[in-house]
C-alpha cells in the first residue's frame, strides 16, 4: 500500500501537469512542432502556452527556436534528449503506479 504513495511522490509535477504532459507527448512523437499546433492541441491561450513552454525550456526538457514563417514570427519546439528520458521515466512510474494500485485493490 505504501508503494502506491511512494510512486505518487516520485511523479515529476513539472511533467505531470496535463497541458505540459500533452506538449511533451506530442513533441516526443514528432521531430518538431510549432506554437500554433501546440496551442490548438492544448486549447490554451497564447499567454498560458508561452508560460508552460518557458517552464519546460527552463528545465531543459524542450528546445525552442524562434523563426519567421511567411514573414510572421513563429516558435518551433522540439523535445530534448533530457525531456525524452524524463517522459519515458514518467510513463514508467505511471505504469508502476497503476499495477501497484491494482494489487492494493485486490488486497
Amino acid at each position: 500500500m505504501a508503494s502506491v504513495f511512494e510512486d505518487l511522490a516520485a511523479l515529476d509535477r513539472l511533467i505531470h501537469e496535463p497541458a505540459r504532459l500533452s506538449i511533451l507527448a506530442a513533441l516526443s512523437a514528432c521531430k518538431v512542432a510549432d506554437f500554433t499546433f501546440l496551442q490548438r492541441l492544448t486549447g490554451l491561450t497564447v499567454g498560458n502556452l508561452s508560460s508552460h513552454l518557458a517552464k519546460l525550456e527552463e528545465a531543459g526538457l524542450i528546445l525552442t527556436e524562434k523563426k519567421f514563417v511567411a514573414k510572421r514570427p513563429n516558435t518551433m519546439a522540439a523535445i530534448s534528449p533530457k525531456g525524452r528520458k524524463a517522459l519515458e521515466n514518467h510513463w514508467r512510474i505511471l505504469d508502476t503506479l497503476r499495477k501497484d494500485a491494482q494489487e492494493w485493490k485486490a488486497k
Binding site: 514528432c30 518538431v32 499546433f37 501546440l38
Partner: peptide, 12 residues
C-alpha cells in the same frame, strides 16, 4: 492548415 492548425514535422 499551416496557419490555422500549425506545422508538425514528422520524425525521419
Amino acid at each position: 492548415y499551416a496557419s490555422r492548425y500549425g506545422i508538425v514535422e514528422g520524425k525521419p
